[in-house]
Design a protein around this nucleic acid. Structure first.
Length: 434
RNA sequence: GCCCGGGUGGUGUAGUGGCCCAUCAUACGACCCUGUCACGGUCGUGACGCGGGUUCAAAUCCCGCCUCGGGCGCCA
């Protein structure tokens, strides 16, 4: 089918072969219209019963919705057709028949619930809106990559099967690796740190992370895409600068190259890239502002982690992306460095969208003895992490970085209600297939 | 892990003890219709998650199971 013409490219006067899915068949009696849909859009095929080959007309009229068809014919200008052109067919072939009872309606006349859609993702992705999300996702990844490359970062790929957990804390998926106990990696954290001590110095990775938490919320996945950055000779403020740049670049890329997709999602009017200059609140300011909103039953005190409800209240109050910096050292992971002039304060930071946390980062502890002490304090055996800690004996520069939840970025960018909308085949507590 | 809510034709829904051999839309089948664009019209097919219980009577109330969604915790 190498001379196939896409629906959007059919020019009046041309003789074409179009191929795609039967979107709809409108039979008006003497005349009928077959709407064929492909990845570029839809095109109308005219069927005049008295004037065309009867077998061909019957073939077209018998085609079920969503069957794959090929139509040969002449493209004619026709103001009454939806796209201004229509195909006057000379031949119609049903290439692959679809059942009449579909598990969901790709034309979108009747909605389907998310589980039904995910069970039938292929059909779901025939819908313009679903397709648009993944075109935008691809553009976000491209925009992010370009921004990292412009920042002289090298893209890396680190192992997803690992011998030990990364930071402790979150649950890991255990697997068997040739008879040995192993795990699915929860984060590229340790590996990207090993890279800043190498000659590569500044790295980023876009890859899967696995978390075995049994949570069941619209913003968690058990397999997610992490966008990670790490650079030698950076402190936490420089890491935040890069974070702003990268997130803004993702929005800019979408605004620039995804007009059609934003239109399909009904976002063309309101879509706006952030300023690229996110407010930086200290943890102390954050809890004060949350307390001032009176959203919480109990006032937060220094040392508390931010509850979800508090995050929402603060997000509403700030109204744009923002950072929370200078967290109490106790509630940030041990591999994050504390301020030199105040050991109770961490250089760790979170970057928040008004709806939820997007990024977590900080300057890393690069001093070997401090790192070992941190492992011990965390109840982890430093011996098990020797592959990692020993490199801190061979010249590990100061460094900083962060991890960004890819699906969360897309979810908040597009105002999706459920993070599963941003993954083709999501993995959650209940879902292992497709 | 704790807590809450839901499962009705293929899909999305109405129905909170008798008015229900179950509503509506869409899809599907038949027929009518030569410019539809969610085409229209007439007729028709098709469902109460599973098991037990209460009751004269259960989609509706109770119990168990299965299954799905959500809130919190934790995180990205």
């Amino acid at each position: 089918m190498d001379e196939r013409t896409y629906a959007a490219d059919a020019e009046p006067g041309a003789t074409v072969t179009v191929a795609g899915w039967v979107h709809e068949l409108r039979d008006l009696g003497g005349i009928a219209f077959l709407i064929v849909r492909d990845t570029t859009g839809r095109i109308q095929v005219k069927l005049e019963k008295d004037e065309m080959d009867a077998d061909m007309v019957d073939t077209a009229l018998d085609a079920n919705r969503e069957s794959v068809v090929r139509v040969d014919g002449a493209v004619e200008e026709e103001p009454r057709a939806p796209t201004g052109v229509e195909v006057v067919p000379t031949d119609v072939e049903v290439i692959a028949e679809a059942d009449t009872q579909l598990p969901l309606d790709p034309s979108g006349k009747v909605g389907a619930e998310l589980p039904t859609r995910l069970d039938n993702r292929t059909l779901d992705l025939r819908r313009e809106e679903a397709q648009a999300i993944f075109e935008i996702r691809a553009e976000v990844l491209r925009g992010v990559r370009d921004a990292f490359r412009a920042h002289k970062a090298t893209e890396i790929n680190t192992p997803k099967i690992v011998a030990t957990g990364t930071e402790g804390g979150t649950e890991l998926f255990p697997i068997t690796y040739f008879g040995e106990e192993a795990f699915m990696n929860q984060s590229p954290q340790l590996f990207k740190q090993l890279m800043v001590g190498s000659g590569v110095e500044r790295v980023f990775e876009i890859g899967p992370i696995f978390r075995a938490e049994e949570h069941n919320t619209p913003r968690h996945l058990n397999e997610a895409t992490s966008i990670d950055f790490e650079s030698a000779f950076y402190d936490h403020t420089e890491a935040m600068d890069v974070c702003e740049t990268v997130v803004t670049a993702a929005y800019d890329a979408v605004a620039e190259n995804c007009e059609r997709e934003l239109e399909a999602l009904g976002l063309a009017e309101e879509f706006e890239a952030p300023s690229g200059d996110f407010p930086r609140l200290t943890y102390e300011e954050a809890i004060e502002r949350i307390n001032a909103t009176d959203a919480l039953d109990e006032q937060l005190v220094w040392g508390d982690d931010l509850p979800t409800e508090g995050e929402h209240a603060l997000g509403q109050d700030v109204g744009e992306h923002y950072f929370i910096t200078d967290w109490p050292a106790d509630i940030k992971p041990f591999y994050i460095k504390n301020h030199d002039d105040d050991e109770t304060l961490s250089t760790g930071f979170d970057m928040m969208h008004p709806r939820m946390e997007l990024v977590s980062g900080g300057q890393r502890e690069h001093r070997h003895d401090r790192l070992i002490a941190g492992f011990e304090q965390q109840g982890l055996d430093p011996e098990q992490f020797e592959y990692y800690t020993k490199m801190f004996n061979y010249g590990m520069p100061p460094h900083a970085g962060w991890g960004l939840g890819g699906e969360r970025l897309i979810m908040t960018m597009l105002g999706l209600d459920n993070i599963r909308e941003a993954v083709l085949f999501p993995r959650d507590r209940q879902r292992l297939s497709p």
